[in-house]
Amino acid sequence: MRLIAENLGGERGGETVFSNVGFTLDKGEALIVTGPNGAGKSTLLRIVAGLLPAAGGKVLVKGGGEAFPTVASASHYLGHLNAMKTALSVEENLGFWRAFQGEPGLDVEEALETVALGGLGHLPFGYLSTGQRRRASIAKLLVSRRPVWLLDEPTAGLDKASEEQFAGLMRGHLADGGIVVAATHLPLGLEGARELQMRVAG
């Protein structure tokens, strides 16, 4: 399994945000994307996920096999928004994504235990605090299997203990042969991760 980005260019509202960004990640490798606000970290992640058209270059996966033939099908995308419904309970939310995304991983209950939300699954998602919401959203990465995790400010709103716990989850994912691309300001506690420094264009 290998994630390759070649000569990527990104645009926002017709303005070039970055150009000629490239990286190759083999299984077990992580890439930390850093840079000031407006440098295009989120744009880069959305282009890699295929949610935005690239202004140039391309992204592809190799060796994903039948289950993960394309980047979109091989990727989890954790954006700024949690993609959970406030009117549904945490269990219902996670159960839905588990069924919808296919390739089931952990049980909903196990995933909630892993992010230290065990016993809170029956609560409506809207009742959780900001950090708890983020953790529930992180549990979404665990309920279905994807080799590539694309994380946009994954630790926003998390406390120190949860950050460390999440670093542990990422290390576990990498040890299983996964790939992590994370955009962040904060150190994520990943040793040996490569770093991509983005600059504000112009």
Binding site: A49, G50, A72, S75, H80, L81, G102
Partner: peptide
Amino acid sequence: REDGSLDLLVLNGDRH
């Protein structure tokens, strides 16, 4: 779209 679910629906549109 407002809660980010649409991104995942589109992303998974690649599988089905």
